[in-house]
């Protein structure tokens, strides 16, 4: 397995660390502390890179692998930061049958990142999402709050160019 350590340098601040330590201290003695601590950690940092998970593991006295196991079991947790422009491609049923898979693959190829990852310049992140309720426009993607519909893979360049 290729390691899932984020190649984007960690830029956590001392304030963020203090905040995380306070959260850990608050939950330390409670059973099942890992989930709420991870949720708050993601609120603080936006994602859960190895640096953050190591702090959680050391703070709660649980193995790092246990922390990682939980963080990859639940889709709400992300191992990678979100970009300035968050691209979500709908892979819900209607979009999928209208070819959103190919749109997603083109984006992944152009940006050089996989599902859930972020480009090295932190500009774009890419996620596959479920139905966003715009089936009439299928296949659709969103960039932050902007919606793009009736897409083909060839539209990808144009959309990316708008944010370059």
């Amino acid at each position: 397995m290729a390691s899932t350590k984020s190649s984007i340098p960690f830029t956590g601040t001392p304030e963020q660390e203090r905040e995380l330590m306070a959260v850990i201290a608050e939950h330390k003695e409670q059973q099942g502390a890992l989930m709420p601590v991870l949720q708050k950690a993601q609120d603080i940092y936006g994602y859960l890179p190895i640096e953050v998970q190591e702090m959680v593991a050391a703070g709660l006295g649980v193995p790092l692998e246990e922390v990682y196991g939980v963080s990859t079991f639940y889709s709400q947790f992300s191992l990678f930061p979100k970009g300035e422009y968050r691209i979500s491609v709908c892979l819900g049923t209607a979009c999928y049958v209208k070819g959103s898979g190919a749109v997603f693959d083109r984006l992944s190829e152009k940006l050089g990142i996989k599902n859930g990852e972020c480009t090295a310049d932190k500009k774009f992140s890419l996620d596959a999402c479920r139905c966003i309720g715009a089936c009439g426009l299928a296949p659709v993607l969103t960039v932050n709050d902007e919606v793009y519909g009736k897409l083909t893979p060839d539209d990808v360049d144009k959309i990316l160019a708008k944010y370059a």
Partner: peptide, 15 residues
């Protein structure tokens, strides 16, 4: 430990 879930579940190390 067990990483990921469902069909992707596998035993491995952190990250």
């Amino acid at each position: 430990g067990a990483n990921q879930r469902g069909f992707k579940t596998h035993i491995g190390c952190a990250f």
